[in-house]
Amino acid sequence: MTAAQWLPDPTRRHELRYWSGDAWTEHVADEGVQAVDPLPTHDDAAGLGEPAEPVDEHVPVARGGSGGITGDLVDGRYSESTATAPGPSLQNAKLLRVRVSEPFMARQGAMVAYQGAVNFAYQGGGAARFLKKALTGEGLSLMRVEGQGDVFLANEGYKVHILHLDNSGISINGANVLAFSASLEWNVERVRGGSIAAGGLFNTTLRGTGWVAITTDGDPVVLDAGEAPTFADSNALVAWSIDLQTSIRSTATAGALIGRGSGEAFQVAFGGRGFVIVQPSEGPTVPPHSHGG
């Protein structure tokens, strides 16, 4: 009988699938990123048969001894990714792994674990950024990470996405920034067409060449603003191409109909060629006012 281990996926939908020792499971892995993919309904786990393949050399292997402990947490399926390239990669959908080769910036408090000789230092935003944060509530509390090792970052269990900028720019809601290359220029800027009176319409901009990891509360949608006039709720908006033209629309009378918030609602309108990232969440629902005496 083949022992429990990671083996080439017999369904051919993924690189690897976990064999429990008795049957194939829903646990899969692609390029070191683990996920869950149920087996086809027309083929149950036993119907796929026992594997005859040798262990793949890229199968994730649990590090360290398990000390006689068994179970899914120590059998290898949740082991650290085997990716060896420097820079960011996904450990899983909600956890960023950065193999430190050059300094990068990360959200303060986002580190959940690290291995190696890694240093963390407070990164001030400068007087101009501090003033904007005080006036608008938008801004980033950052730490500079450098050294040699692996750093794991997460924020509130949100999903993590990695983008690579090539002499380009992106505007991101500060709450959705997890980490980015220290080589990128960053600032807190007012959304064009917005005002302080509109509230919360200041974003973090990143420009240059490097990587950025952002988080979303659920699976986002990426809209092509060049296809049609595009509008997004300011509370659900995550990021957009920095070259898009923006303006602010207020729907005071329809605020209770088209958004989750109570009272006045704001949408950001986009024009030009580029993308807009929106998450399926607008933050906590505002409870109705109590009228009790």
Score class of each variant (00 low, 15 high):
L223P: 01
L244E: 09
G226F: 02
R260G: 15
Q245F: 03
I214H: 04
S250N: 10
G263F: 00
D224Y: 02
N235V: 08
A265D: 06
T253F: 08
A254V: 10
A265H: 02
A239C: 07
R249W: 05
E264H: 13
I258S: 07
G263V: 06
V221C: 09
G255I: 02
V222E: 12
S247A: 13
S241E: 08
A254S: 10
A252Y: 00
R260I: 11
P220L: 07
A254F: 04
D219C: 05
F231W: 12
A256T: 10
D243E: 15
Q245T: 13
I242F: 03
S262D: 11
T251Y: 00
A265T: 09
D219P: 07
S241P: 05
S247E: 15
A225S: 13
S250V: 14
S262Y: 10
F231Y: 15
Q245N: 13
S250E: 13
A236Y: 01
T253D: 14
I242S: 15
E264Y: 02
V238H: 04
T216Y: 04
D243G: 14
P229N: 10
L223Y: 12
T230R: 06
I258G: 04
G255K: 01
G263D: 11
R249S: 15
P220D: 08
N235S: 12
R249H: 11
R249A: 13
A256P: 07
S250G: 12
A232M: 04
G255P: 06
E264A: 15
A225I: 12
G218L: 11
S262I: 09
T230F: 10
D217T: 09
P220W: 05
T216R: 02
A213G: 05
L257S: 09
I248W: 00
T216S: 10
P220E: 13
F266K: 03
T253Y: 03
A228T: 14
D219R: 10
D233M: 03
P220V: 08
L257N: 04
V222D: 09
T215F: 02
L257D: 06
D243P: 11
I248A: 10
G263E: 04
A228E: 14
P220H: 06
A254G: 09
T230C: 07
